[in-house]
Computed example of a mutant assay.
Amino acid sequence: MVSRTIQQHGVGAELSRWRRLRRISQLELATRAGTTQRHLSFVESGRSLPGRAMVIRLAESLGLSLRERNELLVAAGYAPVFPESALDEAALRPVRAALDQIMHGHLPYPALVLAPYGRVVAANEAVEVFTEGAAPELLRPPVNMLRLMLHPEGMAPRVANLAEWGRHVVENLRARARHSPDPRLDDFVTELAGYVPQGPIGPAHLGFAVPMRLATAEGELRLITTLTSFATATDVTLAELRLEAFLPADQATADLLHARHRRRTAAAR
Rank of each mutant, 00 (worst) to 15 (best):
L72T: 02
A91L: 05
A59G: 14
A98Q: 11
S61D: 11
L148N: 03
L112R: 12
S61V: 08
F82D: 07
V55L: 00
A98P: 00
Y109T: 11
Q101Y: 04
P152L: 01
M149I: 06
Y109Q: 11
P80V: 08
P116K: 10
S65W: 04
P116S: 12
R119L: 13
I102K: 10
R140D: 12
H104F: 05
L148Y: 07
V95C: 13
L99V: 11
A86V: 07
N124R: 03
V74T: 11
P152R: 02
P80G: 09
E71I: 02
E132G: 02
A59P: 04
R69N: 01
N144Q: 07
G118M: 05
E128L: 02
A91M: 07
M149S: 10
P142R: 05
R96Y: 11
V81C: 03
A111Y: 06
L148S: 08
A115N: 02
R57N: 13
E132T: 12
A111P: 09
L64N: 06
A126T: 01
G118V: 03
L139N: 07
Y109H: 14
V113H: 08
P136R: 03
V129R: 01
A135F: 05
L72R: 00
E84W: 00
L139D: 02
V129Q: 04
T131I: 00
L62Q: 05
A111F: 04
D88N: 14
A126D: 00
L148G: 03
A122P: 02
S61E: 10
G118P: 01
R140M: 06
M145L: 13
R96C: 15
S85Y: 15
E89T: 13
R140Y: 01
L148D: 03
R119C: 07
E60R: 15
V129I: 13
V143I: 15
E128P: 00
G118E: 07
A59D: 07
V113E: 12
P80C: 10
S65V: 08
Y78L: 10
E71S: 11
A75C: 10
A79M: 10
G77P: 03
L66R: 07
L92K: 11
S61K: 09
E153P: 04
R57P: 01
L87W: 10
A97W: 03
L150D: 09
E71R: 13
L66A: 07
P116I: 08
A97K: 12
M103G: 12
A90T: 13
L62E: 09
P80H: 09
V113Q: 07
E128M: 04
V113T: 14
V127Q: 01
L139M: 04
I56T: 15
L138S: 05
E89S: 14
D100K: 06
R93Y: 02
N124S: 01
P152C: 01
E89P: 03
M103I: 06
D88V: 13
